[in-house]
Amino acid sequence: RLIESLSQMLSMGFSDEGGWLTRLLQTKNYDIGAALDTIQ
């Protein structure tokens, strides 16, 4: 599930440099909407 969510976020133009996006998705239970809300 992480790989699916991460690949979708990467395709939106986000980077996972340093693993920050992986950690964010894990804390949000791989919910892309919740991750995007946090980023904004």
Rank of each mutant, 00 (worst) to 15 (best):
M9D: 02
L36T: 03
F14L: 07
D37Y: 06
E4N: 10
S11P: 04
D31I: 07
M9E: 03
T22G: 04
I32S: 04
A35Q: 03
L6T: 00
W20I: 04
E17M: 09
G18S: 09
T38D: 12
L2E: 08
R1L: 13
D31S: 05
S15G: 08
T27L: 15
S11W: 03
Q8R: 12
L6E: 00
K28I: 14
L25P: 01
A34M: 10
T27S: 15
N29Q: 09
R23Q: 11
G19I: 01
Q26K: 12
L6I: 07
S7I: 12
G18W: 08
N29S: 07
Q26Y: 06
M9I: 06
S5L: 13
Q40V: 13
I39Q: 03
D16H: 04
L24D: 01
T38R: 06
Q8P: 03
M12G: 05
T22K: 03
L24P: 01
G33L: 15
T38I: 13
K28S: 13
L2V: 07
L10I: 15
G33F: 12
S5K: 08
Q40T: 13
W20Y: 08
F14H: 02
R23N: 12
M9N: 02
L10K: 11
I3W: 14
S11Q: 14
N29D: 13
D37Q: 14
T38H: 14
L2M: 08
L24Y: 01
T22I: 06
I39T: 03
S15K: 09
E17A: 09
L10P: 02
G13W: 07
W20F: 06
A35G: 03
R1A: 12
I39S: 01
A34E: 10
I32M: 06
D37M: 09
N29K: 08
S7P: 01
I3K: 14
S15C: 11
T22F: 00
Q26P: 01
I39V: 06
D31Y: 04
Q8K: 15
Q26E: 14
S15Y: 10
I39A: 04
L24N: 01
G13H: 05
T27H: 11
S11T: 11
G18K: 06
G33S: 14
M9Q: 01
I3V: 13
T22D: 04
E4A: 12
G33D: 15
M9F: 07
R23L: 11
L25G: 02
Q8G: 07
Q26W: 05
L6D: 00
G19N: 07
T22Y: 01
I3Y: 13
Q26G: 08
S7W: 09
Y30E: 04
G19E: 07
D37T: 11
L21S: 00
T22N: 04
L6M: 07
R23E: 12
E4M: 09
G18A: 08
R1S: 13
D16E: 03
L24W: 05
I3L: 14
M12E: 07
G18M: 08
I39K: 04
A34D: 09
S7Y: 11
I32W: 09
I39L: 13
L24H: 03
D31P: 05
G33N: 13
L10D: 05
A35D: 03
T27A: 15
D31G: 01
E4V: 11
G18T: 08
E4L: 09
L2W: 07
L36V: 08
S5P: 06
I39F: 04
I3S: 14
Q8Y: 10
I32G: 03
L24V: 06
A35K: 02
E17Y: 10
M9L: 13
L2K: 06
R23S: 10
L10T: 09
S11F: 06
A34K: 09
G33A: 15
T27Q: 15
M12V: 05
L10H: 09
L2I: 07
S15E: 10
E4W: 06
Q8E: 12
I32V: 14
G13A: 04
N29I: 08
G33Y: 13
L24G: 00
D31W: 08
D31K: 00
L25K: 00
F14W: 10
W20D: 04
G13S: 03
T27P: 02
Q26I: 15
S11A: 15
A34C: 10
F14G: 03
Q26L: 11
Q8W: 05
G33P: 11
M12Q: 08
Q40S: 12
R1M: 12
L21T: 00
L6A: 00
D37N: 11
T27R: 12
R23P: 01
A34T: 07
I39E: 00
W20V: 04
S15L: 10
L36P: 03
S5H: 04
K28E: 10
D37I: 14
E4G: 09
Q40L: 15
K28H: 15
G19C: 12
K28W: 10
M9K: 01
R23C: 13
G13V: 06
L10E: 11
D31N: 07
I32Q: 04
R23M: 10
D37L: 11
D16R: 01
G18H: 09
D16G: 02
A35L: 08
S7V: 11
S7R: 15
W20E: 05
Y30A: 08
T38Q: 14
Q40D: 09
A34R: 06
N29A: 10
W20N: 03
T22E: 07
R23I: 11
T22M: 04
Q8V: 14
M9A: 06
Q40E: 11
